[in-house]
Computed example of a mutant assay.
Amino acid sequence: MHIEFLVEDLSTEEALSYLLPKILSDSITFDTHSFQGKQDLLSKLPKRLKGYKKWIPNDYRILILVDKDNEDCQKLKRKLEKIAVDAGFVTKSLAKGQKKNKYQLINRIMIEELEAWFFGDIQAVTKAYPKVSKNICEKATYRDPDDIKGGTWEALERVLQKAGYHQGGLQKLKAARDIAPQMNPTKNSSKSFQIFYTCLLEIIQTEEI
């Protein structure tokens, strides 16, 4: 089995390059393709998926991963589902409940952004940046990684700068490169990460049947 990951930026691609080998079995290969932001991904997605449809084998899966940002989650999911269906794909959401439950494409939304996944594993953050307080997750502001007010990347920037890191502004690619290798996928408290992780486990189980 092979999985094509379509993500909106380089920092997500970088994070996945460390996370996916920790999750996927050795028999599953993958490629990650990043775009110049969410709007670039969404604008190019219809043509990209129609191109895939012309050649993609049955044992390939496509996983599209985008940030929620300030959008309505349900509307964004419907938009992604429509693009996939228009290109001729059966999505995981549409296949649910069907007898064979066969699908080839999965749409997943990070709530709110990649940095929420980092807040979901504070231990990884403190390993990457030792001067960050290990008790930060006990503060109400950061307790729910998917419900941090004012933007998660801005929150991560504040936390890191307070500890003396990224003084010139958060370097997202560097943060992903520093934090993701330390992450433990089984212990992440971000609900959106847990959904993503469970989805990959389901794909592995399907491959093993």
Rank of each mutant, 00 (worst) to 15 (best):
R143C: 11
D144P: 08
D69Y: 04
Q104I: 01
D121P: 07
L41C: 05
L42R: 07
F30W: 12
D40H: 10
F119M: 15
L42E: 04
T186Q: 11
T126V: 14
S189M: 07
G164D: 09
L6Y: 02
A15W: 10
L160C: 04
L201G: 02
Y103P: 15
E112K: 00
N188D: 13
L24M: 06
K77A: 03
K47H: 14
K174I: 06
L200T: 07
K54D: 02
K75L: 12
Q182T: 12
Y60Q: 11
N135Y: 12
E202T: 07
Q205I: 06
F119G: 13
Q123G: 07
W153G: 01
Q194M: 09
T91C: 02
T126G: 05
D26P: 05
E71W: 10
S192Q: 03
V90N: 02
T206N: 05
A95N: 09
Y165E: 04
F5I: 13
R48W: 02
L156K: 14
A95L: 03
E115V: 02
E14W: 05
L105A: 02
E115P: 10
L170T: 09
D67H: 07
F119V: 14
Q161K: 14
L160S: 10
K75R: 13
N101P: 12
A176M: 12
R61I: 06
V66K: 12
R48N: 02
L49W: 01
P46K: 00
I204S: 13
K47V: 08
E113W: 02
K44N: 10
N107W: 00
I23H: 05
K92I: 01
L63Y: 08
E115C: 14
K38Y: 00
L42P: 05
A163G: 05
R48Y: 01
I28Q: 02
V85K: 02
I62P: 04
G88F: 06
G164A: 09
G168E: 10
L200G: 07
L45P: 00
A84S: 01
S25V: 15
A95T: 14
P181Q: 00
F118Y: 04
I111P: 05
Q36L: 13
L19T: 15
K53I: 07
Y197G: 09
Q182Y: 00
K134Q: 10
G151T: 05
L10T: 11
G97V: 15
F30T: 08
